[in-house]
Simulated assay, not measured.
Amino acid sequence: MIKALFFDIDGTLVSFKTHTIPSSTIDALAVARANGVEIYISTGRPLALINNISQIEHLIDGYITTNGAYCFVGETAISCSQIPKNDVLFVLDKSNELHFPCMVVGDTNLTMYNTASNPEKVKHIAEMLNVPDIEYELPVEDVLNQRILQLTPFISEKQESMTLPHLVNIESRRWCPDFADFTAKGVSKAKGLREIAAYRGFDLSETMAFGDGGNDLSIVMEAGMGIAMGNANQCLKQAADYITSSVDDNGIYNALIKYHVI
């Protein structure tokens, strides 16, 4: 019996085409919640950039954010994993050396560092994710005074390979060719799943996780039932227990019907 559902946002709950949640998904989650199933978000987005799920916010029990670096249930913080400050400063130095922008995510707010090195790429990603209000002007020093939960350097795979060997305390996940998400070592969406399951007292076998990208691989493999969207990348599809239809073709609704969650 499934007691908890975990959903990635972009490409899973929210369509890249419409930037909205399909009505079939909204209806399915409402039925699941009415049936007593708990609903959780599992996203690489920082909390400050979760701007596209207002239609279902009232149904959500908790969140795995920043790829597992900050997790909470209701008003209770479950975990907060920060990147060591020397690693943060190293990445920012590389940003200057290799000329790439980098989002710096603190536990209160965030900023974009070195935007001028590639403003068009930053604009493109902001449009893709429908986040026009990314903070560009906040001085990075204001964020560095906080716990740094995630760095998102807008780097190529080649630049990433030049940077990661120097970062033994960093995990890197890439779900878009244009950037990677860096978090502290050991942080993942699967870690967030385990922490929330332990806090709420349900077994992992009673969980179902949905995703479409590389940063969803750990949670799709860890959950009792891992579901890849029809629009997911091939790696995730190979790891999933089931491949549903795409986000724009009622994928979440179809999977929840198949496994009798609704």
Score class of each variant (00 low, 15 high):
residue 11 G to L: 04
residue 12 T to L: 11
residue 12 T to I: 05
residue 12 T to R: 07
residue 13 L to V: 05
residue 13 L to E: 00
residue 13 L to M: 08
residue 14 V to C: 04
residue 14 V to Y: 09
residue 14 V to L: 12
residue 14 V to R: 15
residue 15 S to F: 10
residue 15 S to N: 07
residue 15 S to V: 03
residue 16 F to M: 11
residue 16 F to I: 09
residue 17 K to L: 11
residue 18 T to R: 06
residue 18 T to N: 02
residue 18 T to H: 06
residue 18 T to S: 14
residue 19 H to C: 10
residue 19 H to T: 13
residue 20 T to D: 13
residue 20 T to E: 14
residue 21 I to A: 09
residue 21 I to C: 08
residue 22 P to N: 05
residue 22 P to V: 02
residue 22 P to T: 03
residue 23 S to P: 01
residue 23 S to E: 14
residue 23 S to I: 08
residue 24 S to V: 02
residue 24 S to G: 01
residue 25 T to I: 00
residue 25 T to W: 01
residue 25 T to P: 02
residue 26 I to A: 02
residue 26 I to M: 03
residue 26 I to E: 05
residue 26 I to T: 08
residue 26 I to Y: 00
residue 26 I to D: 05
residue 27 D to P: 06
residue 27 D to E: 15
residue 27 D to K: 15
residue 28 A to V: 10
residue 28 A to H: 03
residue 29 L to R: 03
residue 29 L to H: 00
residue 30 A to Y: 03
residue 30 A to N: 10
residue 30 A to Q: 06
residue 31 V to H: 07
residue 31 V to F: 06
residue 31 V to Y: 06
residue 32 A to L: 07
residue 32 A to S: 14
residue 32 A to H: 05
residue 32 A to N: 08
residue 33 R to M: 08
residue 33 R to T: 05
residue 34 A to T: 10
residue 35 N to S: 15
residue 36 G to P: 04
residue 36 G to S: 03
residue 36 G to Q: 01
residue 36 G to H: 01
residue 38 E to F: 01
residue 38 E to N: 04
residue 38 E to S: 07
residue 38 E to T: 04
residue 39 I to L: 15
residue 39 I to G: 07
residue 39 I to W: 05
residue 40 Y to Q: 02
residue 40 Y to H: 12
residue 40 Y to A: 04
residue 41 I to S: 02
residue 41 I to Y: 10
residue 41 I to G: 05
residue 41 I to E: 06
residue 42 S to I: 03
residue 42 S to D: 07
residue 42 S to G: 12
residue 43 T to Q: 14
residue 43 T to N: 12
residue 44 G to N: 08
residue 44 G to D: 13
residue 45 R to T: 08
residue 46 P to R: 13
residue 47 L to G: 09
residue 48 A to I: 12
residue 48 A to C: 10
residue 49 L to Q: 11
residue 49 L to M: 12
residue 50 I to P: 08
residue 50 I to L: 13
residue 50 I to W: 05
residue 51 N to K: 14
residue 51 N to H: 14
residue 51 N to V: 10
